[in-house]
Simulated assay, not measured.
Amino acid sequence: MTEQKIDIADLRREYTRGGLRRADLTAEPMDLFELWLKQACEAQLADPTAMCVATVDESGQPYQRMVLLKHFDAAGMVFYTNLGSRKATQLAHNNRISLHFPWHSLERQVMVLGRAERLSVFEVLKYFHSRPKDSQIGAWVSQQSSRISTRGVLESKFLELKQKFQQGEVPLPSFWGGYRVVIDTMEFWQGGEHRLHDRFIYQRQDAGWSIDRLAP
């Protein structure tokens, strides 16, 4: 490893875009999430629906990757993936999951803890056929997380399948599906001056949601 050229220990800045007060909170965490996501879209952030998805393998080793949120409502948050992928294999063993939305330029973060549940074939099929055709074909091409020799393997397979499905509908692959994350906990983080950040945590209770402020 070459000698470090940048002194990262001194890289810091003040967070000055505003605070988060209890009066700003909603009774349901998804209502506040919807507002923040809307503001992230209006701010034209790159990939505002991108979230870091964390799962754990059988040995307890955590893994993370960026995935796009495709739907959310009171029932939870939805994403799609190859069912043979590393994340799907790990969720089959342990369905506990964490999501993280890093909206850096707004000085905001949202963290989610919950349980991943497989979507029905009907839900998956409905979304699959709403995708661009090339994306549908791409789902057939990639055996996600498997080892391949070169990128050319993917490209040649894509061209082969594009020709095959040139006419007519692309069928849903049996190995492609989705998950709904049933939320137990949501934490909202807003940067603050002097590192006095604002953090509020929502935790599901039998009668609704408890809300607590956390120290930064």
Rank of each mutant, 00 (worst) to 15 (best):
R21D: 11
R22N: 08
L25E: 05
A27Y: 03
P29C: 09
P29I: 06
P29T: 09
M30K: 09
M30H: 12
M30Q: 12
L32A: 04
L32F: 09
L32N: 02
F33L: 14
F33I: 06
W36F: 05
K38Y: 09
Q39D: 15
A40E: 07
C41P: 00
Q44L: 06
L45G: 01
A46H: 11
D47E: 15
D47A: 12
D47T: 12
P48M: 04
A50V: 10
V53T: 06
D57W: 07
E58T: 09
E58N: 08
S59Y: 08
S59G: 02
G60M: 06
G60P: 01
Q61N: 06
P62W: 12
Q64L: 09
R65Q: 05
V67M: 15
L69K: 00
L69Q: 02
L69H: 00
L69S: 03
K70I: 08
H71C: 05
F72G: 00
D73I: 05
D73S: 13
A74R: 15
A75H: 13
M77P: 01
V78G: 05
F79P: 02
Y80M: 04
T81K: 02
L83K: 00
G84Y: 00
A88R: 02
A88Y: 02
T89G: 12
L91K: 01
A92N: 11
H93N: 11
N95Q: 12
N95F: 05
N95Y: 02
I97P: 02
I97L: 03
I97Q: 02
I97G: 00
S98C: 13
S98F: 03
L99E: 00
L99N: 01
L99Q: 00
L99K: 02
F101Y: 12
P102D: 11
W103G: 08
L106F: 11
E107P: 05
E107Q: 15
E107T: 07
R108D: 07
Q109K: 04
V110Q: 00
M111I: 10
V112L: 07
A116S: 04
A116H: 03
A116Q: 02
E117V: 13
E117P: 00
F122A: 14
F122V: 15
K126S: 15
K126Q: 15
S130F: 07
S130V: 05
K133N: 08
S135N: 13
S135M: 09
I137N: 02
A139C: 15
S142W: 03
Q143E: 10
S146D: 09
R147H: 14
I148Y: 08
I148T: 10
I148K: 05
T150L: 06
T150V: 11
T150R: 13
G152T: 11
G152I: 04
G152V: 03
V153H: 12
V153P: 00
E155T: 13
F158G: 03
F158S: 03
L159S: 14
K162Q: 15
K164R: 15
